[in-house]
C-alpha cells in the first residue's frame, strides 16, 4: 500500500468518525428539543407527561399495560396519574418510582405479576424503554448501567436513545392525538369486532398452563422489590402492590406463594387475578390478560373500594 492510499484510507475513516459524531450530536439535541414539547403518545409522550407531573401528583399508578388499561385513576384521586406503559415490567417501574420526589407524600399503586416474579428468565430488559432519558437523567442512566442494558455505543452515539421512536415523536409533536392537559394516563380499551373474534378463537383452542414446580423468586425481581420498599419507606410514599385480573387462572399456587413472599416483606398487596372468576362475560375482556373498558370499570370500582376501606392509612 503506497503512502497516498494510506493517506486516503486514514482521511476517509477520520472523516466518517468526525462527521458521524458531529451529526449524531446535532440530531440528538434537535430531537431533545422536539421531545421536550411532546406530552402525548404511549411511550415518550407519556413518560414526559409523567416527569412533568411527578412532583405535584398525590397518586401514581405504575406498571405494564395491565396497569395502563385497567385503572381509571380519576376514580381514585383528582390529582393522580396513570403512568402504566405497555410492555414494561418491574425494572422500568422501579426506576420511575426512584425518580419520585423525596419526602412528598404520595401513593404509588404498582402492578406486579407473579409470572414475572417466578420467571428465571427475567433480566430487566424492559428498562430499555427508558433509553431516551439515558443521557438526560442521572437516575435512569445509573439504573440502565447497573443492569448492563445500555447499548455499548450509547456513550458515543447519543441518538441511540431515540432509536425506533423518531416517527412517533414527530407525529406527536405536530399532530397530537389528544389534549394532554386533560389526560390522566388511563387508556381504556374499546374492543373491535376483530379483537372479539380473535379472543373467541384463542379461547376455543386454549391449553391449560401448568404450575411451575418450584416457586423461587427471581433474584433481580426480589432486589427491585427491596429497593422500592426502602425508597418508599424512606420518602413518605404509600406503596400498594396489585395484580390485575386474568380471564382464567389455572394455577393458583403461584399467586398464593407470591402473596406469602410479599407478606414477609410487609408489602400491602391486592391480588385480583380471580376477580372475574364468577363473571364470564366476554364483553369484559379484550384478551386473556387485558380487560375491556367495561371490565376496567368494574375492576377500578373494586380497587377503589379496597384502597379506601382496607388500606387507607
Amino acid at each position: 500500500m503506497d503512502k497516498q492510499t494510506v493517506k486516503n484510507v486514514v482521511s476517509i475513516f477520520l472523516m466518517i468518525i468526525v462527521f458521524s459524531y458531529a451529526l449524531d450530536k446535532v440530531v440528538f439535541y434537535t430531537l431533545n428539543s422536539v421531545s421536550d414539547k411532546v406530552f402525548t403518545g404511549q411511550s415518550m409522550g407519556k413518560l414526559n407527561h409523567f416527569f412533568k407531573l411527578k412532583d405535584s401528583i398525590d397518586l401514581v399508578v405504575i406498571g405494564s399495560s395491565r396497569a395502563n388499561h385497567h385503572i381509571d385513576v380519576s376514580k381514585i384521586s383528582e390529582n393522580g396519574f396513570n403512568a402504566g406503559t405497555d410492555g414494561t415490567k418491574l425494572a422500568y417501574a422501579a426506576t420511575l418510582i426512584k425518580t419520585l420526589p423525596k419526602n412528598k407524600k404520595q401513593t404509588v399503586l404498582l402492578h406486579i405479576s407473579e409470572k414475572t416474579a417466578f420467571s428465571e428468565d427475567y433480566d430487566g430488559e424492559d428498562i430499555i424503554s427508558l433509553k431516551s432519558k439515558y443521557n438526560r437523567n442521572e437516575i435512569i442512566r445509573k439504573e440502565i448501567d447497573a443492569l448492563g442494558k445500555a447499548n455499548k455505543l450509547h456513550h458515543i452515539f447519543y441518538s441511540l436513545g431515540y432509536n425506533g421512536s423518531v416517527l412517533g415523536l414527530l407525529k406527536n409533536r405536530f399532530f397530537p392525538k389528544y389534549n394532554y392537559k386533560s389526560y390522566d394516563g388511563f387508556d381504556p380499551i374499546y374492543i373491535t369486532s376483530q379483537q372479539e373474534k380473535a379472543f373467541q378463537m384463542f379461547l376455543s383452542r386454549k391449553t391449560t398452563d401448568e404450575c411451575p414446580h418450584s416457586f423461587n423468586i427471581n433474584p433481580l425481581y426480589e432486589q427491585y422489590l427491596e429497593q422500592i420498599k426502602s425508597f418508599c419507606d424512606a420518602n413518605n410514599k404509600q406503596l400498594i402492590l396489585f395484580t390485575a385480573p386474568v380471564y382464567e387462572d389455572n394455577c393458583k399456587d403461584d399467586n398464593r406463594e407470591f402473596a406469602k413472599i410479599l407478606d414477609q416483606y410487609n408489602f400491602k398487596y391486592l391480588d385480583y387475578s380471580n376477580l372475574f372468576k364468577e363473571n364470564s362475560d366476554l364483553a369484559n375482556w379484550r384478551d386473556a390478560t387485558h380487560l375491556s373498558h367495561k371490565g376496567a370499570e368494574i375492576f377500578t370500582t373494586k380497587i377503589v373500594e379496597d384502597i379506601y376501606l382496607n388500606l387507607a392509612p
Binding site: 462527521f19 440530531v27 432509536n163
Partner: peptide
Amino acid sequence: ALLCSSSIIIIVL
C-alpha cells in the same frame, strides 16, 4: 464520508 455518516445516523435511529 457524509453519506456513510448519514447512513450510520439513520441506522442508529
